[in-house]
Nucleic acid binder design. Structure first.
Lengths: 326, 326
DNA sequence: TTGAAAGCGCTAACAA
DNA sequence: TTGTTAGCGCTTTCAA
C-alpha cells in the first residue's frame, strides 16, 4: 500500500509536508497542497491510522461493549452513537458479550490493547475493577444504562420512574390487580405508584423471576386474575403469548403496558414506556467529546439520567370491575 | 501506559523475549515466560495493537458497513459475526450508513485508513469501484446480501426462491388474487410461482413502489380485494396496519405471508420466510478466515447463496372463494 | 533460548 | 512555508 514517503517522493516534497496536508496541523502553501492531494489521489494513498495512532497516542476510536441481553433497542442506540461519532471523525469498535461466550473481561482487554480513546460499557458488577482502574488514566470511561462504578461517568434511564408512571396510569383507570412481570430494580416504581394512590398491591402480583416462561405466566394469570399487566422487555413477549393461549383480548379482557417500546408493540397498538434513544446517544457522545477534546479530566456532571416516556396506544381500558374495591 | 520496554527492564530480559511471550512466535523458556507474564500482569501491561499492526501490516480487524435499510435482522447478524470473529481473535469495526448522512465512500475510506484485514459491505452500486479496486490487493473483500461486483466474494440469500416458495403455498391453498407488496428483484419469484402452477396473476396485483404508504396499501386492498397478501420486510408493517384500519382479520378475511421473520411476526402468528442468520454469519466468516489465514488468494467458491426457509404459523387459510376460478 | 537493532508509517520538534 | 530527523511500541531477522 502506498505510504507517505512515496507520495512525498512522487511530489518532490518532504514527508512532513504531506503529513501536514493530511493532518491539517500546519499551513501548507495552497499550490503545494493541491499537488500533494492530486498525487495522493492518483496513487490511492490513504493515511495509515495505525502509524498515526502510535505516534499520537490517540486512535480516534471509541469502543463499545454490548451486554448479552438482547434488547433490540440496544442495537438502535449502537447505530445512533456510531453516526454521531463518525461525524466527529471517530471510529467505533464493538464487542458483543454472549452468555457462556466472550466475557466482559476479554472484551475490556481487547479494547485496552486496541487503545480506544473512550470505552462505553454496561458493567453488571465490579468484577473487572482492576482492568478498569488501569484504563481510567488514559481512556474515557462511560457506563451506559447502569451506574455500577460510582466514580465513572454514566448515562442511565430512570426506569423506576417510568414504571411508576405506567402503573399510575393503570391505577387511575381503576385497575387494582395489576400483575408485574419483570426485573428487580425497576419494581420499586410499581410499589411507588400504589403508594402514591394510597393503595397496597395484593400479594402474589409481582413476578421478578426472569426465567419465568409462558406457562408460568399463564398460571399466574389464571390464579390471580389480574385486570391489567405491566411487563418488562424480554418478558412482554411471553405475556402476549400467554394472552393468546388463554384467549384473553386486549384491552377488553385485560389491559397491558409494556416497558421498552418495540416494533411489535407499535403494530399491536400496545401502550408502552419508551426510551429516548436519540437523547441518550446525544448526551453520551456529548460527554465523550468533552472528555476527549475538552480540557476536562474527569467527572463533574458526569452522571446523567434521562426519563423514559409513555406512548399511549390502545391496550389500556378502564377496569370493568369498578374503580374502587377489588 | 506500560510498554514492552518497561516490562523487559523490570524483568531483566530483552524486549524481544517479552514480545515472544505475548505473540507466541518463538519458544521461550517456561520459567522466563512465567516471570514475564507475572511482571506484565503486575504492571498492567497490555500489548499495543497499533504498534503490532504497524509492524505486521495486519490489524486483526474486520470492518463492516451496514446500509441504511433498517432491517432489524441486519443487527442480529452483526452480533453473530462479531462473536465468531472474536473467537478467532479478530476485532470488528462498524460503520452505519445513513440516508443523507455518511456516504458509503466515506465509510470505505475510513476502513481503508484503519487498515482492516477484511471488509464486509453491501454495495448498492459500483460507484466506489475505484476505492474498492485499490483495496482488493491487501484487503479481503466480501459482499453481504448482494452481488454487485462480479469479481468479489459474496454471501447472498436466494430471495426469489423464498418468494416463490411462499407464493406457491398460497396458490396451493387456493388463493388466486395474491397481492405482492415489495421490491423489484424478488418479484420474479412471484411470477415463477404462478407459472409453476400454470396460472397468470391478474393485473394490478403487484406493488413495487417502496414509497407506498399505508393509505396506498389500503387503496390497493379495497380495489383488488386480494384473498392473500405477500409482503416484504419494510412493507409488512404497513400491510398489517392497513388490515387493522380496514378491520380485516387474518387469516379469516385475508391470508398473509411476510418476507423476513421478526419478533412481531412470531408474536402475531404470521407465517414468514426467514433468513438463516447463523448460517449466513458462519459461511461468511469461514470465507473470511480462509482468505486471511489460508493460502488462498481470491475467489474459488467465493459466491455463496443460502436459502431462506418458510416458518408456518397461523396466518394462512384456504381461500374461501374456492380452489379453482377467481 | 535469548539479545541487539533495524524499521513499519507517521508526527512534531527544531532548523532553515 | 518547508525539510530533517528522532522516535511512538512493536516484530523479526541475524548473531550469540
Amino acid at each position: 500500500m502506498t505510504n507517505i514517503k512515496e507520495v512525498a517522493k512522487e511530489c518532490g516534497v518532504s514527508v512532513a509536508t504531506v503529513s501536514r496536508v493530511f493532518s491539517g496541523s500546519d499551513p501548507v502553501r495552497p499550490e503545494t497542497r493541491e499537488r500533494v492531494l492530486a498525487v495522493a489521489q492518483r496513487l490511492g494513498y490513504s493515511p495509515n491510522m495505525l502509524a498515526r495512532g502510535l505516534k499520537k497516542a490517540r486512535t480516534q476510536t471509541v469502543g463499545i461493549i454490548i451486554p448479552s441481553i438482547d434488547n433490540s433497542f440496544y442495537l438502535g442506540i449502537l447505530k445512533q452513537i456510531e453516526i454521531i461519532l463518525r461525524k466527529k471523525g471517530y471510529r467505533m469498535l464493538v464487542s458483543f458479550l454472549q452468555h457462556g461466550g466472550t466475557s466482559e473481561r476479554d472484551a475490556i482487554s481487547l479494547m485496552a490493547s486496541s487503545r480506544v480513546d473512550a470505552l462505553v460499557f454496561t458493567p453488571r458488577d465490579r468484577s473487572n475493577a482492576d482492568l478498569i482502574g488501569a484504563l481510567r488514566e488514559n481512556t474515557g470511561l462511560f457506563q451506559l444504562f447502569t451506574d455500577t462504578y460510582e466514580t465513572i461517568d454514566s448515562v442511565t434511564v430512570d426506569d423506576a420512574g417510568g414504571v411508576r408512571e405506567a402503573v399510575s396510569l393503570l391505577l387511575k383507570e381503576g385497575h387494582r390487580r395489576i400483575l408485574y412481570v419483570g426485573g428487580d430494580p425497576r419494581v420499586s416504581g410499581y410499589y411507588s405508584a400504589y403508594a402514591d394512590a394510597g393503595l397496597t398491591p395484593e400479594d402474589g402480583l409481582v413476578c421478578l423471576d426472569w426465567s419465568a416462561d409462558e406457562a408460568a405466566v399463564c398460571r399466574m394469570i389464571r390464579e390471580k386474575k389480574p385486570t391489567a399487566v405491566f411487563s418488562v422487555a424480554g418478558q412482554s413477549e411471553k405475556v402476549w403469548s400467554a394472552f393468546r393461549s388463554l384467549s384473553l383480548k386486549v384491552p377488553e379482557d385485560v389491559s397491558l403496558i409494556v416497558y421498552d417500546d418495540s416494533v411489535w408493540a407499535r403494530l399491536l397498538g400496545i401502550t408502552a414506556v419508551a426510551h429516548p434513544l436519540e437523547e441518550i446517544a446525544e448526551r453520551l457522545c456529548e460527554r465523550i467529546f468533552l472528555r476527549l477534546e475538552g480540557n476536562e479530566t474527569a467527572g463533574e456532571g458526569g452522571k446523567i439520567t434521562v426519563s423514559p416516556f409513555l406512548i399511549r396506544r390502545e391496550s389500556v381500558a378502564p377496569s370493568a370491575s369498578g374503580t374502587g374495591n377489588q
